[in-house]
Design a protein around this nucleic acid. Structure first.
Lengths: 235, 235, 235, 235
DNA sequence: AATGAATGAGGGTTCATTCAT
DNA sequence: GATGAATGAACCCTCATTCAT
């Protein structure tokens, strides 16, 4: 866990130490443009962001932007794609070998998510997708496949582990997994939307928020859970 | 009616039961325009929605729109304000006199929210605010004061009641209240954003979703809560 | 001269005591509309004046205006036509029988012009024509025929009288007549243009201005006119 | 060249001696746009002139206009400011050292004005100001300060010189100075307004007109000035 | 005749995109 | 490759004009 902590926050800068010449396509295309575009799209939305502004923030001229991205839409798509790291495979491995209680696994999952994604500019992608999904259905699908599905799969496996080991009494995992997703979404929305423009009436400490949510999630609000009520709902 | 995909888009159809020829007068127009604008703003965002489109969806010409709202921005503000009826006072009364367990109160709270807000087009306002908050800080502040604050206050009181009556072992209400907000936000985002444009891989039944979240919230995931672990978290 | 003075200023109101049923065309059409339009056209110009504003100032609704004038252009033309009184015939008679020095005739001419036209709202027509002549050439021609020509003819005759009676040593009447026109134009421009929107640095008393111009015109600036220089110019 | 009708419209022709392909760069554009705008504003007025027309006459597209002037109103202001070069200082010097009779000074003053301003397109500014003063009070004030005041000051000094040297018997310079202004105004109005759209009934030669006015101004109409009548006027 | 809600062509302005340098 | 002047389609908004009442 401590070695992981050291990796934290190193993402936004040195992302690909050796470009690896994977496809060599546009690995050289100014990362600055994508970073500038991400910031602005998150801040103002796709339609309200002017191309020239993106170029200016990246320190190049308007024409240069179109040298790398044929249209503003392509730029947007590239921003989304580039910031969606397919890192879940790697995480899967980490969690595959996780030892300890599943409760700790949930805690660790949140922590890792916050440190590697939530706290970085890449978290703005979520707000972007939320805002523009219906204007860019293909991107929404892409995000669904690249981020949501693997993420949910990971969460599903964690919950299943809890159930299998008798630690959790989850009934329907397909719904319960959102108990982990929702706080993440909430936090990101606070960071990039309302929370970014309002005088903070109440300071919201992300890590404390997440911890608090997890503990409530794990142990519930009720002092003495009454199994008889489980699943009845309020209908 | 039970799956989310069915909830979406089942509204643009039956619009004018009997158009009544041209009986609809000045007093009906604003509402029609606001409804059309809400739909489009939620769907495409403020900047990407054209004024003429709003007018067309309301069945009037471009010029008519500006007879009622001097600018597109004022239309936007009116959309937000109009769809935020100060219903919290009335709700407060309902909850003031609530009898029964606080767990039931939480269940009832969610149910009422879904029926009166979540399931209506007004829920799109949340997505709208999330998407445009940084471009319209005044509106964000307005929403904060008119919706978030009263809502949070209501939730806070419910939680406090649970604690006071020894039903809940809440530690920090200022964070715990988001355990109720987050699922609401999540559901609304699904309804108006990603969920509205993706082929529903899995049907998400809102009421079942909410019930599930509430029960998990109330009773926790862990089979046997271990008080010793409470508060340790992953810090 | 005194009976004439009594007639002064009675124009703008009771214009046609008995409508005479001359052509009966639109004698009944609200004079208020034309008056309102004159004011506004003079104030803001033809293009910048909105039809609705004219109607409002006349105390009727937008639709009513178009009941009387099919287009804004026709309204403009009507304003010009209605305010160009063909009163020169009547003036001609007055001047035909004038007895006294031609210098006094010039003085009287100016005085009458100021009192019957210059000081009334009708003087705004001149500014209107000046501003819009090139957009309404037919109106310019109309004005030329109805106002300028008869006016110049009147002035021409006065000057000719002075020359014939040995009172003036005019050489070229075709140019000299503008010596009378120019001060009129100047005064009207001051009244309706610059003078109407600037803090008057210097108060310009119209009657004093006209007197002063006439005396200079009659007697010249030079203390001792040197006939030898006359007509040499500065070439 | 001698008749007014020939002076008008003899300008829109020889526009681009050698268009030089596309050598004309950013520095030439503003001047071209301002010239085009001056022509059109004078011809049709501010409100009736379309931005695209200005651009077209300058040989550029609509968008280019807004590269140089943020709004049509700013374009208008720039037109007025640009065409008012503070040439009065230089003229002041010329007149400071003038030797000869003050009558000759007046003749020279008119001649210089015509050659350097009256005959140039810049004279259209006067019609423009007259027409738009009440819609642009700040511009009217600007024109008042930059053009009228210095000009009047110059004229005032000339008249004062004549009085001081015993050449003129001016009584009230504050009124007499308009005897010089009025013919200028008249000529410019003829050139840019009525005279520009009417079939010239009579050719008006500007220089001859000015000479004629000056001589009348200097020596008066009356053959034998009767000092006893001076100042009586028609009051 | 009078009203004023409704219309839609027109014009000011923006901005993604192009292209000559 | 980089630039930024130029373009013109598109959009917000105005307002002369129409027409049902």
């Amino acid at each position: 866990m401590s070695s992981l902590s050291q990796l934290i926050g190193a993402k936004a800068k040195a992302k690909e130490p050796p470009p690896a010449k994977r496809e060599r396509r546009k690995e050289a295309r100014p990362r600055e443009l994508l970073d500038a575009a991400l910031e602005l799209f998150v801040e103002k939305g796709f339609a309200a962001t002017r191309s020239e502004e993106v170029a200016a923030r990246a320190g190049v001229s308007k024409g240069t932007l179109f040298l790398y991205f044929p249209t503003k839409e392509e730029l947007f798509k590239a921003v989304v794609r580039e910031n969606i790291s397919g890192r879940f495979a790697e995480w899967n491995d980490e969690f595959q070998t996780f030892e300890g209680s599943t409760a700790d696994m949930v805690r660790y999952c949140m922590k890792v998510w916050w440190e590697r994604l939530g706290a970085t500019p890449a978290s703005g992608i979520t707000k972007l997708i939320i805002s523009e999904a219906r204007n860019f259905p293909e991107l929404a699908a892409f995000y669904q496949n690249e981020v949501i599905k693997p993420g949910q799969e990971l969460i599903r496996r964690i919950l299943q582990r809890g159930v299998d080991r008798g630690e959790f009494h989850v009934i329907d995992i397909e719904y319960a997994r959102f108990s982990i997703t929702a706080p993440m979404l909430f936090l990101v929305m606070m960071k990039h939307s309302l929370g970014a423009c309002l005088p903070q009436d109440y300071p919201l400490d992300p890590q404390r928020y997440l911890s608090s949510q997890i503990e409530t999630l794990l142990h519930g609000l009720c002092v003495r859970p009454d199994p008889a009520q489980k699943g009845q709902g309020s209908q």
